[in-house]
Amino acid sequence: MQILRYAAFTTDPAGGNPAGVVLDATGLTDSEMQAAAARVNYSESAFLLPRPDGDLDVRYFSPLAEVPFCGHATVAASVAHAAANGAGPLRLHTRAGLVEVSTTESEVGEITATLVSVTPRTEEISAEVRTALLSALRWDPADLDVVLPVRAAYAGAWHPVVAAGTRARLAELNYDFPALSDLMAEQGWTTIQLIHRESESVVHSRNPFPPGGVVEDPATGAAAAALGGYLRELGLVTLPAALTIYQGDDLGRPGVITVGIPTDPTAGIHITGHAVPID
Rank of each mutant, 00 (worst) to 15 (best):
Q2R: 14
R5T: 12
F9S: 02
F9G: 00
P13I: 12
P13Q: 10
P13H: 13
G16E: 03
G16R: 07
G16H: 06
A19L: 04
V21G: 00
L23V: 01
G27P: 04
T29H: 14
R39N: 04
S45C: 13
L49I: 14
P50A: 10
P52Q: 11
G54R: 10
V58G: 04
V58W: 07
F61Y: 15
P63G: 09
E66D: 10
P68C: 11
A73I: 05
A73D: 03
V75I: 15
A76F: 08
V79M: 07
A82M: 04
R91A: 14
L92I: 09
T94D: 01
T94L: 08
R95P: 02
L98K: 10
T104L: 13
E107F: 08
E107Y: 13
V108G: 12
V108Q: 14
I111L: 05
I111N: 00
I111E: 02
T112W: 15
L115P: 05
V116T: 15
E123K: 15
E123W: 11
E123I: 10
E128H: 15
E128I: 10
E128A: 15
V129E: 10
R130V: 09
A132H: 09
A132M: 12
S135G: 11
A136T: 01
A136V: 01
A136H: 02
L137R: 07
R138C: 13
L144R: 01
V146T: 09
A157C: 08
H159I: 08
V162P: 00
V162R: 02
A171L: 05
L173I: 11
M184E: 02
Q187N: 06
I192S: 00
S199G: 14
S201W: 06
H204A: 05
H204T: 09
N207G: 09
P208R: 08
P208C: 05
P208N: 07
P210T: 03
P210L: 05
V215W: 13
E216Y: 13
D217L: 03
T220Y: 10
G221E: 01
A225C: 07
L227E: 00
R232M: 03
L236N: 03
V237Q: 09
V237C: 09
L239V: 01
P240D: 13
Y246P: 01
Y246K: 08
D249A: 15
D250C: 11
L251K: 05
R253D: 06
G255T: 03
G255F: 10
G255N: 01
I257Q: 05
G260L: 09
I261S: 09
D264P: 04
I269Q: 02
I269K: 01
H270E: 13
I271G: 00
H274A: 09
V276K: 00
P277N: 06
D279Y: 11
